[in-house]
Write a protein that binds this DNA or RNA. Structure first.
Length: 582
DNA sequence: GCCGTTTTCGGCCCGACTGTTTTCAGTCG
């Protein structure tokens, strides 16, 4: 038997069942039931196998008799009969075809039934040969649209990281702010929820009805726009620097409703609309309509939307339908009081010129003080990281001496302390890259895996566990090793790592580099729930990178972290006590 | 297929834009 399916493997099968049932034109509510179950399985914070063992599968929302049976079957056999049967019934690459923007289940079905098309390549060929336009409901324009969509989907990257998305969003927002008759230009969607990557950029703005179309036209002719996807009376979509930007215009009176609607997530909004229906109301981007009287009440402020539904305000980072609705219903006291950037007292992961950083210790310290920090941990690479200027043992001692001298000159006068740290390699066998003698001289030891990424799950897990039970490690850096959009993390049983971190009192890092964001929001939340402290570090290699702290705090907020869960939300004295240096 | 302070049956989120239609279906977010 193959590997035991995990939550996301099982969720994937139900997502695919949803897609296949859509293709087979089954009752659309069956499709939705599969999707809902898949979403809830995906966002479970426990291993679904535990629920299965305890006979509690039906405790998962959206999981009833049939889906519970399916889950059991997948856990026991790796797949389920219904899924295999449907795949046999449909000898075409439904998933590949539906991956093309503008192609939906109806088109796939017609193309398959009437033209025998089974793959994206065949679809492209049919478009080139002008056979698609003969399909019912298709014309010359649809055919051309599909052809460009296929070509674009081959070259377009899927999701982009925030360091790329934010500057592009700012260009568009500054342009719009200069346009006449426009105000309240605001980023919404996944960007406002601070997801770790975004698929597109969603903007909204207010204008009066007389001018909205002109504003949208102006948006389409913004410098740098390479394509206008659509442009109507209230919304438009364009491509700028290879990124799609959607803009929606509303009047001031319904701005709060619009903001709420476009911030999403889709799943969160569906839950809100269900709540509205139960109260005899209808929620839309225009406001809240009383079902009986038909009277629409637009919300100027976003909080009004929640208030009218009888809920406390829910901050955007929590709007993922991962328990925030239930917490809100239970009362505002059940929602977390999330950590903010103002709570952060220092950066715990920074590289200096001693290894591969661009700035000296005093330069980094000045920049940190400029950000209002009380401390900064200079954590250069250890000796094995030759390629990144890893420090020999005698270099570490010289660095510690430099830091001591700096603190002697500055600590009492400026109320700021540099902490001597190191990002120490965890070797392939789980030992650390410095002897105990050196580790004990450091204020903070950050352990990290930088080599041997292809180790199997068991080896990697016991390697990391060995390192953190060693007793010298304060923080485990970028615990999964992933690089967003570039590289999956190494194989590791993160639940086991969290468990051992809890036992040993080791903090886990939220690496704030926008290419990493590791731990992820979901794993950081698991860590919090296991009683593990999180340390937000920017992994800065220059003073500029200290600004990445905002990305790390966003992940922390999405992980429901409060200041007490974050190691560097503690002041110097408390931090030193925690790491045994106070 | 799931679910219940209207329901164990009859519901299931809402609206914009495009293209092919001549009143609407398909797709998307």
């Amino acid at each position: 038997m193959g590997k035991v399916p995990c939550n996301s493997d099982i969720a994937l099968i139900f997502y695919r069942l949803a897609t296949l049932s859509q293709f087979l034109d089954e009752n659309p509510f069956i499709t939705r039931a599969y999707q809902k179950a898949a979403r809830n399985i995906e966002s479970l914070d426990v291993d679904i196998k535990h629920l299965f063992d305890a006979g509690k599968l039906k405790a998962i929302p959206g999981v009833g008799e049939e889906i519970a049976k399916g889950i059991a079957e997948i856990i026991e056999t790796g797949t389920c009969k219904r899924y295999e049967a449907m795949k046999r019934e449909i000898p075409c690459d439904v998933f590949g075809l539906l991956g093309i923007p503008g192609i939906g289940p109806k088109t796939v079905r017609r193309a398959y039934e009437q033209l025998g098309i089974t793959t994206p390549d065949e679809l492209e060929k049919a478009a080139i040969e002008h056979r698609l336009r003969k399909l019912q409901g298709m014309g010359v324009k649809s055919e051309a649209k599909i052809l460009t969509a296929i070509r674009r989907s081959k070259e377009m990257d899927k999701r982009i990281t925030l360091d790329v998305a934010l500057p592009i969003a700012r260009i568009a927002m500054e342009y719009l702010e200069r346009c006449p008759h426009v105000s309240n230009v605001t980023a919404t969607g996944s960007l406002r929820r601070h997801r770790e990557t975004v698929g597109d950029i969603d903007l909204i703005a207010t204008s009066d009805a007389d001018h909205s179309e002109a504003v949208l036209k102006a948006f389409g002719s913004m410098p740098g726009v390479t394509r206008v996807i659509k442009s109507g009376a209230t919304e438009a979509s364009v491509i700028l620097k290879n990124v799609r930007i959607d803009l929606r215009i509303a009047d001031r009176a319904s701005f709060g409703s619009l903001l709420q609607h476009f911030t999403g997530s889709k799943e969160h909004n569906i839950r809100l609309r269900e709540i509205a229906i139960r109260k005899g109301l209808k929620l839309s981007e225009y406001g809240i309509t009383d079902h009986e009287t038909g009277i629409l009440t637009p919300c100027g402020e976003e909080a009004e939307v929640y208030r009218m539904l009888g809920l406390p305000f829910i901050v955007p980072e929590l709007r993922e339908d991962r328990g925030e609705i239930e917490a809100a219903i239970a009362g505002s006291g059940s929602l977390p009081d999330l950590v903010t950037e103002d709570d952060i007292k220092g950066d715990l992961h920074v590289h200096s010129k001693w290894s591969d950083g661009a700035n000296s210790v005093p330069e980094l310290a000045d920049a940190a003080m400029g950000r209002g920090y009380e401390y900064l941990c200079i954590s250069d690479h250890s000796k094995s990281r030759g390629i990144a200027g890893g420090l020999s043992e005698e270099c570490v001692i010289r660095k510690i001496n430099e830091i001591d001298a700096f603190n002697d000159d500055n600590e009492s006068s400026r109320g700021f302390r540099v902490l001597a740290g190191s990002e120490v390699d965890i070797r392939a066998d789980g030992t650390l890259d410095y002897p105990d003698r050196i580790l004990e001289m450091l204020d903070i030891v950050i352990a990290a895996v930088h080599t041997g990424f292809s180790q199997d799950r068991r080896t990697m897990t016991s390697r990391i566990v060995r390192a953190i039970v060693d007793g010298h490690v304060d923080i485990l850096a970028h615990p999964t090793g992933r690089l967003l959009g570039e590289r999956m993390g190494y194989e590791v049983d993160i639940d086991r790592v969290i468990e051992v971190a809890a036992e040993t009192g080791t903090a886990l890092e939220i690496n704030a580099s926008p290419r990493r964001l590791d731990l992820s929001d979901i794993n950081a939340r698991k860590a919090k729930e296991a009683g593990v402290m999180l340390a937000i570090g920017t992994d800065a290699h220059s003073t500029y990178h200290l600004g990445y702290m905002e990305f790390g705090v966003h992940v922390a907020r999405r992980a429901w972290l409060e200041p007490c869960d974050v190691m560097n939300a503690r002041g110097t004295t408390e931090l030193l006590r925690r790491i045994g240096r106070g």
